[in-house]
Amino acid sequence: MRKVRTAVFPVGGLGTRFLPATKAMPKEMLPVVDRPLIQYAVDEAVAAGIEQMIFVTGRGKNAIEDHFDRHYELETTLGERGKKEVLAQLDGTRFAAGTIAYVRQREPLGLGHAVWCARHLIGDNPFAVLLPDELLWNPARPCLKAMIEAHAEVGGNLIGVLDVPREHTHRYGIVSPGAQRGALTEVRGLVEKPKPADAPSTMAAIGRYILEPAVMDKLEARKRGAGDEIQLTDAMAELIGGSPFHALPFEGTRYDCGDKAGYVTANIALALERDDIGPEVKAWIDANVR
């Protein structure tokens, strides 16, 4: 069974929900406490053993490339001043040459199109897809790590899922479930953003995927789906029956950082976990929130 070594990060979106903050700054660079959102997704990939990272970018995303590049002036200055602890905070932003590749998505044609843009770098290998908007928080057992361990047993295609309220099914790709295999659920169908009355379950895809390269052949057809976009969910649905397809529930806390309320909540929750600032933040909340 081929090991998952590559991850795709679709980061070409316009970030219109966070305007005007995202007019000149990628939404993926918005900080959650003191790390940009994209850093959490990259850290999750590294913890899962990913060796090659592909960022599908667009216009105005240069800050992402700069973030994962060397900053010689900063590093030299910190080194000369003996600020080793501060310098160590940059470790997760620096990678060996060739570890990261960038591909530009010229048109905003949907998530499926963004993934398809990475096809030549993927080749004939299984790969992961991580949506940075979804901050899936479980430092002890990161979502992608759990998925890769499960994939080593069953192979095929695998998606991370979370149970959501039925009234929210229109926001997600929803699984039509089959047989259970331990924590895994067989995926018999996928429906993109169904109405609550039509949803086959409340098991929602949450932005973590392990896919066989055959999905690129489905995306090649450039079929339009919900929102008149090329949907990854639709292409994945066409793979069902051709190879194993399972869903794995995420055990942790999900923060939807594509939403303002979710983003603010993530900042508060992760700040409260910090030893350096948590007590001060909690004291403010206790004194001011009723």
Rank of each mutant, 00 (worst) to 15 (best):
V289W: 13
E149R: 01
V115H: 04
A48I: 02
K218V: 12
A221T: 13
A197L: 13
Q105I: 02
T57Y: 02
E280K: 15
G225Q: 15
K27T: 07
R119W: 06
G178W: 03
P20L: 05
C143V: 02
T6I: 14
A199Q: 14
F18Q: 07
G49S: 08
E51M: 12
F250Q: 05
Y40E: 01
G12K: 00
E229K: 11
L87D: 00
T93R: 15
L190H: 06
G13D: 05
R208T: 12
A287M: 04
W284T: 12
P279E: 07
A221P: 06
P126I: 00
G242D: 04
A221E: 14
R166P: 13
I240E: 05
L272Q: 07
R224D: 07
A221L: 15
R188I: 02
L131I: 09
E220F: 11
A271Q: 07
T57N: 03
G278D: 11
L90M: 13
A21L: 14
L270F: 10
A283I: 10
Y255I: 08
W116F: 15
E107G: 04
V191S: 14
D228M: 04
D275E: 14
V32I: 15
E212S: 14
R81C: 00
G92D: 13
T22C: 01
P196L: 06
M236H: 05
R104E: 06
G182Y: 04
A114V: 00
L19F: 12
I148K: 00
M216P: 05
D276E: 15
L158G: 04
D133H: 09
I64C: 08
R94G: 08
C117S: 10
R171T: 08
Q180C: 10
K193E: 10
A118H: 02
I159A: 12
I100Y: 01
V56D: 03
V8G: 04
H170N: 15
E238Q: 15
F68K: 13
M53Y: 06
H120Y: 08
A47D: 11
E186S: 08
A101L: 02
D259A: 10
V161M: 05
T76Y: 11
E73H: 09
R2G: 03
A283W: 07
A179D: 10
A7W: 02
K193F: 05
I206P: 01
A101G: 01
R35L: 12
R35M: 13
E192M: 15
A261I: 15
T253K: 12
H67Q: 10
A287P: 03
R104I: 05
G182A: 08
L219V: 02
R222Q: 13
N267E: 06
P126R: 06
L78F: 05
V281S: 05
R188S: 05
Y209H: 15
A283N: 09
F250S: 10
H168N: 15
P249D: 09
T93G: 06
L78R: 09
K3S: 07
R166K: 15
